[in-house]
């Protein structure tokens, strides 16, 4: 069963990768951003399964993005792989440090403390001249395996690059979901005390989830910075976090694929709404979120599950 899932996943990534060749430029750049953001959502799904909603995940997103931007600005490094690995490491370490504190909290206190952490970074970014203050700054183009690319080739390679990271992340997260620690999400949400008396530390389980989610968000931020070629403090603002939470609830905690599909739909609807009905984007956002919470508590992913059950197909 799991092998079939992995195969389907690999196939899906392969199809998307080849489809990229014929994608129009606007759709490709939209998809690139959507994929980068999907990594953040993937991390949030890990936390959401355990009942935790951080309202400050943008902290790690911005950390990843600024890592790439600053490396490009202050060093001679230009390698994209190196950029992303540096961003992953840095945001992972930050998540470890923040997690030392955050893992002790639950419910809204978890949400609010996480929010405070991201607002601290926002406060620093907005007011620091060398970090570009409110306007942020331009991100140097990265090189891929030693060669600088331009035009359509650059866009295509960047898309594949982002896609490759997504495939890797999806694989890692699916291994985690099937592991002992990953399967304990519902127990963490429902009965911490039983887990403690089975001999495992719930705080440490949550800390691990935070580190994984933070690292994913950092990678997402780094990739987004490479795609947009610009960073600014709003990447750390609470509304950015709110957007990620939105996609997470929309996607649901059920499946990895939902994170990518949800993120893509989000970007698509946003670009359409901003073009055709300016000033109503947030109304759409709020209404969809409301409807999801009220009528589809399991998110988009649960539609698939319910559908399968109706058709008599056993869900993996």
């Amino acid at each position: 069963m799991t092998w079939r899932n992995t195969l389907v996943g690999a196939l899906a990534f392969a199809v998307v990768a080849s489809a990229a060749v014929v994608l129009p430029a606007w759709l490709m750049s939209l998809a690139t951003i959507a994929l980068a953001n999907a990594l953040v959502v993937l991390g949030l799904i890990i936390l959401w399964r355990a009942g935790l909603v951080p309202f400050g995940q943008a902290l790690f997103y911005a950390t990843g993005a600024y890592t790439v931007a600053l490396l490009g600005r202050f060093t001679d490094l230009r390698d994209a792989v190196l950029f992303v690995i540096a961003a992953a490491l840095l945001s992972g370490i930050l998540a470890y440090l923040v997690g030392l504190l955050l893992a002790r909290y639950r419910d809204i206190f978890f949400a609010m403390l996480s929010l405070a952490m991201s607002m601290i970074l926002y406060g620093v970014l907005v007011k620091t001249e060398t970090l570009g203050s409110t306007d942020g700054f331009h991100v140097e183009s990265a090189t891929f395996f030693g060669s600088a690319l331009h035009g359509r080739t650059a866009e295509l390679v960047l898309f594949w690059f982002v896609l490759a990271w997504c495939a890797l992340a999806a694989l890692v997260v699916s291994v985690y979901f099937r592991s002992v620690a990953g399967s304990l999400a519902v127990p963490v949400r429902e009965r911490e005390i039983r887990l403690e008396f089975l001999g495992i530390s719930v705080n440490r389980l949550i800390h691990l989830k935070l580190i994984i989610a933070g690292t994913l968000a950092g990678i997402g931020g780094a990739l987004a910075a490479l795609a947009v070629e610009h960073v600014d403090p709003t990447m750390a603002y609470w509304t950015t976090s709110g957007g990620f939470v939105f996609v997470t609830i929309l996607a649901g905690a059920g499946s990895i694929a939902a994170a990518f599909i949800g993120s893509f739909l989000f970007e698509l609807v946003r670009s359409v709404a901003v073009d055709l009905m300016p000033g109503t984007w947030q109304i759409i956002l709020g209404t969809v979120l409301l409807l999801t919470i009220l009528f589809l508590p399991g998110g988009l992913g649960s539609v698939v599950t319910v559908g399968r059950r109706r058709l008599g197909i056993k869900t993996p």
Binding site: G242, W281, G286, L290
Partner: peptide
């Protein structure tokens, strides 16, 4: 999250 949705709508 429900109050957040309402907040988003009211913003617009």
């Amino acid at each position: 999250l429900v109050t957040y949705s309402a907040f988003l709508i009211l913003e617009d």
